[in-house]
Amino acid sequence: MMVCPNCKHNNMAGAMFCAECGAQLLGKDALTTQNISTEQFASSLPKNTQDVYQSFDGQGAWGSIHLLDTGQVLPLSVRNEFTLGRISEGQPIMPDIDLSPYQAYAGGVSRLHAIIKRDGNRILFMDLGSANGSYINGKRLQPNAEQYINHGDIIALGKLKMQVLVKNG
């Protein structure tokens, strides 16, 4: 018998995926893993935000969000629009970018706060009717109205400040 580590369902011996929740039980090591040399990693660590942006450039990101308080950089790639907000337990609202690890709650970020999207080479930003509002370079925005933003603009969701870095910005 094999007990699923995920849902504790009793699976028959030899099962490879849990019959109840579909979690993989066997052969996890067989999946291809990559070794990342730590030396290389250390030398490629960016020194300032401009470099951070450069390093994402090669991966097809069209921009990134630099959180000013904590220093994290979140790349914007693959998709053309992202909702920003914070996940709270027991609520089915799932923003594309969850800011809760970056003191979003303390900063007054709504669960579904704003949306950022690409429009050709430019970037559109819209507040989604959040409780504490959004600011671009200190100026409060009308909710639900799209606004173009530029490379280097500082936006604030409530009190949470971030700089938007745009490719070809």
Binding site: M16, F17, A19, L26, G27, A30, L31
Partner: peptide
């Protein structure tokens, strides 16, 4: 011994169908 990769990948998708 880990299961063959082709069985693993087929089964990971078949698991979705069976759910």
């Amino acid at each position: 011994e880990p299961p063959p990769a082709s069985i693993l990948s087929a089964l990971s998708r078949l698991t979705l169908y069976r759910m």
